[in-house]
Nucleic acid binder design. Sequence first.
DNA 1: TATCGCTATATTTACAAAAACATAACGAAC
DNA 2: GTTCGTTATGTTTTTGTAAATATAGCGATA
Lengths: 107, 107
Amino acid sequence: MKVKSRIWIEKDNTPFLGYGRIQLLKEVDKTHSMSAAAKSLNMSYKKAWRLLNEINSSAKEPVLEKQIGGKDGGGTYITPYGKGLIKRFENLNQACVTFLEAEFKKW
Amino acid sequence: MKVKSRIWIEKDNTPFLGYGRIQLLKEVDKTHSMSAAAKSLNMSYKKAWRLLNEINSSAKEPVLEKQIGGKDGGGTYITPYGKGLIKRFENLNQACVTFLEAEFKKW
DNA sequence: TATCGCTATATTTACAAAAACATAACGAAC
DNA sequence: GTTCGTTATGTTTTTGTAAATATAGCGATA
């Protein structure tokens, strides 16, 4: 028996950040490309594009910096604000997991 | 912006207790009937039956006491052990929510 | 032994979410 | 002004999950 959890952040009752979106952001940060990140996560480009745009348009500061066209076709980069979001979310999630595991010992 | 969470308990990596199952157990406790509980939660009887049986067969003590046939066709009751499970799960869940909301203030 | 409403379970149908497919637009570099 | 790989976005197809449907079994009570 073990306890599991998922946390996410909502803005106006719609999903803003959750586990999957964080994975995606991290992969974009690594590859500098929405399409490469999608492929690496076995996700369709379209879905990745939709999720990333939802994040970007809900955040109060830009999370993505996109380059459309150009010598290599373009690319996508995570802003320092975006990197902060990733870190803060992961910290919150880890705190939750730690808390729950401690509580669950009393189960 | 607000933080949301879902917690659940797994046994052998398969779901044992989660939010939906707890709702269902509570409704069975109220109605003394699997079919009435399912209807009240707008769930098919079959799904309720499957979930409740999964719970019952994974728990180390019986959670349900079923009466098949009989003057009113039968019914289903929650054992004291089952009632304890409900209460403990809800306590754990509430603790998690409270913890997360406090943490989220630092966001 | 007939009834009644509940549990038990298989089969079919419907639907929504995801994937697949297709195609346009972009702009730096050569 | 052609090429290239990326972002952008609409349309169609697939698929996996849930609901709907159907039917059998049960047993206390009258």
